[in-house]
């Protein structure tokens, strides 16, 4: 009962408009409808300004759609809730709290810290930060900080884990390590993950569904389903094919154009 998470998301005709400082209206997201199965790993990929982050913020409850609705397990999403955890691009750790206190924030906020004390240590251990419990955020490296911000959300046992380019600011090695960690956590916890990324490799490597969005207004351009039972490897032939296909969709791969750069 306690751990019976679901996390089915459905989007119904999401339309989101913003009004900028000059009073101009622009559409960030238009006619976005899809269903996401519980426990799936969905990547949102697309050029800047396609409304990926806006979509994530709406699932988190930080923004509301101009029209349309988002349902989590058939309940309309209204406001923020710990069931929908968001990991931001910047770690955004509270600088006045040490690592342990940062991780415990959600539990303390929900007044369930006492009965879940051990969870905090379990999660800190999970991402290899044991021994850093008493460190303050400014003493951590970027990768460590981002790990803390990840488990700070996980300790809340969310049904949906929203990742807004959480690895964008990390170096290549840390990034690959964290990709493995996220996959491990995803498999263990059967949480629904929605990942916003700019990195096609990351999307192909990690997700089982990739949603390609077009820019201004953000619309679904293509949904690619990947085989669930595939081997996750970074140099699988399928992997390269898929990457090329996505890059073509995003107009980055040069298939016909041969005006190559001479390096």
């Amino acid at each position: 009962m306690v751990d019976e998470r679901k996390g089915a998301l459905s989007f119904r005709n999401i339309h989101k408009e913003f009004i900028d400082n000059d009073g101009n209206k622009f559409v960030a997201l238009d006619d976005f409808s899809m269903d996401i199965q519980p426990g799936s790993f969905v990547s949102l990929i697309g050029p800047s300004g396609c409304g990926k982050s806006t979509l994530l913020r709406m699932i988190a409850g930080l923004d509301t759609p101009t029209s349309g609705e988002i349902l989590l397990d058939n309940d309309k999403i209204e406001g923020t809730n710990h069931e929908r955890g968001l990991v931001f691009q910047q770690a955004n750790l509270f600088p006045w709290l040490n690592v342990r206190e940062n991780v415990a924030t959600g539990l303390i906020a929900r007044k369930v810290y006492k009965e879940n004390k051990d969870e905090v240590d379990k999660y800190i251990k999970l991402v290899g930060l044991s021994g850093f419990e008493k460190s303050y955020p400014h003493q951590l490296s970027g990768g460590m900080a981002q790990r803390v911000s990840l488990v700070r959300v996980l300790v809340n046992k969310p049904k949906v884990l929203l990742l807004d380019e959480p690895l964008g600011a990390l170096d290549a090695f840390t990034r690959m390590n964290m990709q493995e960690e996220i996959l491990k956590i995803w498999k263990e916890q059967k949480v629904t993950v929605i990942l916003v990324t700019h990195d096609v490799d990351e999307a192909v490597y990690m997700s089982d569904t990739i949603v390609i969005l077009s820019s201004r207004p953000g619309r679904i351009q293509e949904v690619i389903k990947l085989r669930q039972d595939r081997t996750r490897s970074r140099n699988y032939p399928d992997f390269v094919d898929l990457r090329t296909r996505i890059l073509e969709k995003l107009n980055f791969a040069s298939t016909e154009d041969t005006t190559g750069y001479v390096i």
Binding site: G61, L62, L86, F88, T105, V153, N156
Partner: peptide
């Protein structure tokens, strides 16, 4: 962002 983090954490 601190407020947003705290809100999404419950």
């Amino acid at each position: 962002s601190y407020f947003e983090v705290a809100k999404t954490l419950g």
